[in-house]
C-alpha cells in the first residue's frame, strides 16, 4: 500500500519536481523533430544550469550578481584554451578551470559580498566587465573579439558529438544540478541562506555566519556557471567574448527573475522560455534585447514573484478552495 507519507514525498518539490523534470527531459525528444530544435534544447539546458546556480544566490540568498556571464565566459575560455591550445584532455581542462574559477569567486567574493543592494550590483557588474575586458583583449590566448575554436568534448576516446548526444548529456547534468540545488535548499545551510535573505541579524543571532554563507553560495553559483560555460564551448565548437559580456549577465538574471526567484524549477522555466523566445523571434533579430527588456518589465509589474511561484500560488489557492467546497458539501 502506498502510504500517505510516500505520496507526500512524491508531491514534494524535491522528489516530485525532479521526477517531473526527468519526465520532461525524457519525453521532449518526441517533440524535437529536427536538429535545430535539439540545438535550442541544449542551449536551454545549459542556461538552465547557470540559472539554477544563480537562483541560489539571487532568489534564495537575496544577493544580486550582474556579472555571472563572466564566470560562464571564464569556464568557456578556460576549457577552450587548455583543451584546444594546450591539448589538455577536455575533462581535465574543465576540472582545472572550475577549480580556478571557484578560487577566483572565493577571493573576489569575500570583499564584494560585504556590499549590499545597489553597491553589490555595481561591484558584480564591475567584476563581469573586467573579466570580459580581459577575455576580449588578451587575444594571444583568447583570440580576442574574433573568438576561438574549441575541440569537441571527448572522454577516453569517446567523442561527444551531435545535438542528440549533447541533449542527453546536458539533460542529465541539468537534472543533477537541480537535485544538488534542491538538496542544498533543504539543508541547514540552505535554510541559513533563506534566513539571511529575510533578516541578516536574525540569522546571525542564532549562530549563522552570514558572510561565510553568502560566500559559499556565490562560489557555488560561479561553479555552476563555469561548468555550463565549459560544456557550451565544447558543444558549439567556437566561442566569442560575447558569452562573457554584460548583456549575457542581464539575460541570465532576467531568466531567474522571470521564472521565479527562490524557485529552482522556476529558474529552469525562465531559462527555457527566454532562450526559446528569441529563437522564435529570430525575424526581429535586432529587437531581441527589447523583447528581454519588455519581458523583464512585464514580469516585475504583473508577476513580481515570477511565473512558477505565481502559478504555484494560484494552484494552491484553487486547491484550498475546492477542499473548502468539499468540506462544506459534506
Amino acid at each position: 500500500m502506498i502510504s500517505g507519507t510516500m505520496l507526500a514525498r512524491l508531491a514534494s518539490p524535491r522528489t516530485g519536481g525532479l521526477l517531473g523534470l526527468a519526465a520532461v527531459i525524457a519525453l521532449l525528444p518526441l517533440a524535437l523533430t529536427n536538429t535545430y530544435f535539439y540545438d535550442i534544447a541544449v542551449l536551454v539546458g545549459l542556461n538552465a544550469i547557470v540559472c539554477i546556480g544563480l537562483n541560489l544566490l539571487i532568489g534564495y540568498a537575496g544577493q544580486i550578481s550582474l556579472g555571472h556571464a563572466g564566470f560562464f565566459g571564464l569556464g568557456a575560455y578556460g576549457s577552450a584554451i587548455l583543451a584546444s591550445r594546450y591539448g589538455w584532455p577536455p575533462l581535465a581542462a574543465m576540472l582545472a578551470t572550475t577549480v580556478a574559477v571557484a578560487a577566483l569567486a572565493f577571493v573576489v567574493g569575500r570583499p564584494i559580498l560585504r556590499l549590499k543592494g545597489h553597491y553589490l550590483a555595481m561591484a558584480t557588474l564591475g567584476l563581469g566587465i573586467i573579466i570580459y575586458m580581459v577575455i576580449a583583449t588578451e587575444d594571444k590566448y583568447t583570440g580576442g573579439p574574433d573568438g576561438i575554436a574549441v575541440v569537441p568534448f571527448s572522454i577516453g576516446g569517446f567523442v561527444l558529438q551531435g545535438e542528440r548526444v549533447w541533449y542527453w548529456v546536458v539533460g542529465a547534468l541539468l537534472l543533477l544540478a537541480a537535485w544538488l540545488a534542491l538538496n542544498l535548499i533543504e539543508s541547514p545551510a540552505g535554510r541559513a541562506l533563506r534566513a539571511l535573505h529575510s533578516s541578516e541579524v536574525g540569522a546571525e543571532v542564532v549562530g549563522i555566519n552570514a558572510a561565510e554563507h553568502k560566500l559559499m553560495v556565490f562560489v557555488i553559483s560561479a561553479v555552476f556557471a563555469c561548468v555550463a560555460g565549459s560544456l557550451g564551448a565544447h558543444y558549439s565548437g567556437f566561442i566569442t567574448p560575447g558569452k562573457a559580456a554584460f548583456l549575457h549577465s542581464i539575460e541570465l538574471v532576467t531568466m531567474v527573475v522571470f521564472g521565479g526567484m527562490a524557485s529552482t524549477f522556476g529558474a529552469v522555466v525562465g531559462a527555457a522560455v527566454l532562450t526559446t523566445l528569441p529563437q522564435l523571434l529570430a525575424a526581429f533579430e535586432d529587437y531581441e534585447m527589447m523583447v528581454f527588456g519588455a519581458v523583464m518589465m512585464g514580469t516585475m509589474i504583473f508577476l513580481p514573484r515570477g511565473v512558477v511561484p505565481s502559478l504555484a500560488r494560484l494552484l494552491a489557492t484553487r486547491r484550498d478552495a475546492t477542499a473548502d467546497g468539499e468540506g462544506n458539501g459534506v
Partner: peptide, 12 residues
C-alpha cells in the same frame, strides 16, 4: 542551525 550544520558536500 548550530547543532545541525554540516559540511557542504553532505548538504549538496
Amino acid at each position: 542551525y548550530m547543532q545541525e550544520r554540516c559540511g557542504l558536500v553532505s548538504a549538496l
